[in-house]
Amino acid sequence: MPEIFQLDFMVRAFIAGGFVGAISPLLGTFLVLRRLSLIADTLAHVALLGVAIGLLLDRYPVFFAVIAAAIGSLIIERLRTSNRFSGDAALALVLYTALATAVVIISLGDGFNVDLFSFLFGGIVTVGQEDVWAIGALGGVVVLVVVFLYRELVQSTFDPDLARTSGVRVGLTNTLLAVLTGIAIPLAMRVVGALLVGALIVIPVLASLQIARSFRATLLLSSSLGVASVFSGLTISFYQDVAPGGAIVLTALGLLVLASGARLLMARA
């Protein structure tokens, strides 16, 4: 067995990373096509507020991060549909409210800056057994909901009015997608960090959209590219001793460049 798989923490990193690499672009496909690419970034900062609360109370921070991000995503959905703010203004409002509150809470409790750093920049090699369980369980829920709501999600993303004429409950579907995104982001944060979580949700999707024609192919390919990015990035970071979050995102960007090249070749052929 290669050295990399003889270390428990690397095995845990690969398991957790695999889940996160698969589900982030799965949700990302719907978000990118709804022109909500930056929602991940906003929710990552809301999740950071949850982490700060968790660390202050000395409880499992991922739990608070999931709760905070799920609530945050519902608030964004509400603001977006109320027409009081345009889509990106609602995102900005929620982002800064959460970040400002997080900064205040962090300043209240000293001494947890190190832990916080692993959430900001990712700490996949510090992923513990409890993280693997949380990521596996919640990741499984996300996959199941996407599978069973596939038709509704695709329809209401493509054209909400048309979806309604086919009997799709668009509002309910949108709310569920928001909650799923709120669940997935704190998990992905554990792997690539709050600052780069949006990249893992968006970049594999952009790569997939270069090549795939059908929706199903787009979804499966983006998910596969997400897993491939995480596995390659982890391997590179292990042998070259660089930050895993950055290595994963740069790998994903490399795949996007390759996919764009493949598209040009296909167009010429």
């Binding site: 599978v147 596939y150 038709r151 509704e152 086919s166 009997g167 929706f215």
Partner: peptide, 22 residues
């Protein structure tokens, strides 16, 4: 620019005849 084939687009018309499955 939405990634759907002709067949997928038309299949959307029967979405709610068989909900719950992809």
């Amino acid at each position: 620019n939405f990634p759907v084939t002709v067949q997928e687009a038309v299949l959307m018309g029967c979405t709610m005849n068989n909900p719950l499955f992809p």
